[in-house]
């Protein structure tokens, strides 16, 4: 059964052209239409864990905002748990949870337990239900010691654990995470990822997350959607993504002797300056080993490094492959 279905969802913003004079612009504003999301169509099954990736301005946040009922779409349809978000927002609010990495829901000056208690009233939980649920969350999230410390004194990682626990109190069926690991250190990141995975597994909660961090996506999700302007341009698994698009490697070398040029099938020279070379290697066409051997024919190597492309490079690759041109834009959050 589908938890989320979206078809042809569109959103255009009217943006006032800032270049006009302030006074003139006040009385006679000129608007430009910007398409943040143009015709998104996809569906997410119950219990699935899906990552939504794309650069800033790709329409991630706008899509999430429409799915949570914050924004009205310009056209198109969407159903979350059988409800149309922007029509039945309050009803839907009871069934979904959300964590926005850069926006805290915890009361800064108070210990987390006060926020939990408040949320139990906001979500109209019965006392016994609340107690049982909190007990479980405290156990799973190891919040025992954190519960009574004012939030301002918690570390970012500890706070994030509390944030996630807070959004789970009312047993939501669908969770929206917007950049849940932003700003965390490696250990805290791993902890948060384990927790999200366990929520998904044990309670069968549908998880919809956006992230900039490839690690989040690779460890957590079986499904990745790459979007641009809210259009899903790739819907695949991280493994496939890796196979298809992470097959590119970047090789940087410094030769002992300078060479005129380097030509090899499947290799693009990104930078060539004196003895230094930066190459992109398509491992579907050639292998790293072949490239290494070809280089060695010219000269001994003084230094070499091989790296995976960054997520941004992968996305760029995907954009190029799918013929989608513009990257980024405004960032309509």
């Amino acid at each position: 059964m589908a938890a989320i279905t979206v078809s042809n969802l569109r959103k255009t913003f009217q943006v006032r052209t800032a270049a006009q004079g302030r006074i003139k612009g006040l009385f006679n504003p000129i608007f430009t239409e910007v398409e943040a999301v143009k015709g998104a169509t996809f569906s997410v099954e119950r219990g699935e864990m899906v990552a939504f990736i794309g650069p800033n301005g790709a329409g991630k946040s706008t899509t999430i905002k429409m799915l949570t009922g914050i924004l009205h779409p310009t056209a198109g349809e969407a159903q979350v748990l059988g409800l149309t978000p922007w029509v039945e927002r309050q009803k839907l609010a009871m069934k979904i949870g959300s964590v926005f990495g850069q926006k805290s829901q915890l009361w800064f000056h108070l210990p987390p337990k006060d926020t939990f208690r408040l949320l139990s009233y906001i979500y109209e939980l019965d006392e016994s239900v609340f107690k049982a649920r909190l007990g479980k969350l405290v156990e799973v999230f190891e919040l025992d010691e954190l519960l009574h410390i004012p939030v301002r004194k918690l570390s970012l990682g500890q706070r994030m654990r509390c944030e996630i626990a807070a959004c789970l109190l009312h047993k939501p069926e669908v969770l929206f995470f917007d950049e849940p690991t932003i700003g965390l250190d490696v250990v805290a990141k791993r902890k948060i990822r384990e927790l999200i995975a366990s929520i998904n597994k044990e309670d069968g909660v549908t998880v919809f997350l956006t992230s900039h961090d490839t690690g989040d996506i690779e460890t957590l999700c079986k499904r990745v959607m790459v979007i641009n302007h809210g259009e899903v341009i790739l819907d695949s698994s991280p493994q496939l993504l890796r196979r298809e698009f992470l097959r590119m490697k970047t090789i940087g070398v410094r030769l002992e002797e300078e060479i005129e040029s380097f030509i090899h099938p499947g290799v693009t020279v990104l930078k060539h300056k004196g003895p230094g070379l930066k190459l992109r290697v398509d491992t579907a066409v050639t292998s790293v080993d072949d490239v290494y051997a070809a280089l060695r024919q010219h000269s001994r190597l003084a230094d070499i490094y091989i790296s995976d492309p960054t997520l941004d490079e992968v996305i760029e690759e995907i954009y190029q492959a799918t013929g989608s041109i513009t990257l980024g834009g405004g960032g309509y959050r």
Binding site: I70, R89, A93, Q105
Partner: peptide, 9 residues
């Protein structure tokens, strides 16, 4: 941020 309050009941 009005939006974040909108997500709650």
């Amino acid at each position: 941020a009005v939006a974040y309050i909108l997500i709650r009941p």
